[in-house]
Nucleic acid binder design. Structure first.
Lengths: 201, 201
DNA sequence: GTTCCAAGTGGTACTCAGTACCGTAACATG
DNA sequence: CATGTTACGGTACTGAGTACCACTTGGAAC
């Protein structure tokens, strides 16, 4: 019973989730209000009514709070990978078609709560260190993408390039789509069209 | 006389250059020997026979030492931009051709001292925070590239994408070319061939 | 319920990066 | 040689992140 696959959320788990959410809310509010670097962890902890130590138990560092939704994206990506048709992927065009679908799965997930995305976008764009971290996350997706392609028969060099080109389309969309998740989604699509349009021509 | 366009390097200037180089050498040696994060600024300063304060006068932060050759790359890029033929750049293929030439200019500059590049490469690959910073630099090049394209008549959306695709080729090369500057140069070329080959097919 | 264990919490104390400030030494200029 | 400017090193501070410890709380079993 208790060893169920979907165990009932225990009191402990619920409390943990609540504190986690309280930290995120508090931190985002403070960051938006006064800027990322001037807000101290002490301050977040106080307002969230936890100890400083506890903050670092929930998040590895101050930056990590900003990227708290990353797990959802990862879940969306792996789900999309699981559901992806296992067609052979030899050349770049085929690899790109698959990559495109996977990228759109992530963007769609991001578009599920546009409010949060808008705030995230603004925050990251204003702070180089946060943008550094953002691209680290992107790099991680690229790695997963690359692995997926290779596992499905794409030659390594092609897979690496396809993954990076996909990142390029996303980055272009990120630059062009201002604060708006669905706009980013649309721009990413356009970027792929432009890229593949060159292919067709 | 002293207000010459190429003023004779004064004693001060020479000393400054020397300490700067001493810091870089010391820091790289220590980083390679024991790893970036465990080496403290205090230690670098002591071994380089300067005060801790002085270190931060030469470099904004600990990471910045690692990227001390960045200026050379920037010079190479802007020089290449200056010398680039001012042909019209309307479509993506044209924009990519130009971007490719500019990227190769940077890689060529990097290949001018392969020893340093190898060390740099290893250091950055082993430390996520350094790789974050490395991509920040790359992002900066992308911005300059994008601006150059737009200034020469490329439509914004195309320019943004072209710049990002160029970054993609570089990143792919960076992943594939292990520790070797000329290998990275070659891989970047191959990536472009693959990308444009898809275009031609 | 009582007991017991595991997990979560908050405090203290520490290291290190980075900043501000200040007095002093070294170079440049006349 | 006298003067102003620039570089230097030291002190003292803030804030991030870590290690450790004593305490509390939730879960489970008897």
């Amino acid at each position: 019973m208790s060893a169920n696959k979907f165990p009932v959320e225990s009191l402990r788990d619920r409390k943990r989730r609540q504190t986690r959410e309280r930290i995120i809310e508090t931190a985002f509010a403070l960051f938006m209000e006064r800027g990322f670097d001037v807000v101290t962890v002490d301050e977040i902890a106080q307002r969230a009514e936890i100890g400083r130590t506890t903050f670092f138990r929930y998040f590895g560092d101050k930056q990590e709070v900003v990227f708290s939704t990353e797990d959802d994206f990862l879940r969306a990506l792996t789900a999309a990978m699981r559901d992806a048709p296992t067609e052979p992927l030899q050349d770049l065009a085929q690899a790109l078609a698959t990559s495109r679908r996977l990228l759109l799965a992530i963007c769609t997930e991001a578009a599920r709560n546009p409010g949060h995305y808008a705030v995230y976008h603004r925050l990251v764009k204003q702070h180089p260190e946060l943008e550094d971290r953002h691209t680290r996350k992107t790099r991680h997706y690229a790695d997963l993408l690359e692995k997926h392609l290779i596992d499905h028969g794409t030659p390594p060099a092609t897979a690496v390039l396809a993954a990076q080109l996909t990142v390029a389309c996303y980055q272009a969309a990120w630059r062009l789509g201002s604060h708006d998740a669905t706009a980013v989604l649309r721009e990413a699509n356009d970027a792929f069209d432009l890229l593949l349009g060159a292919t067709a021509a």
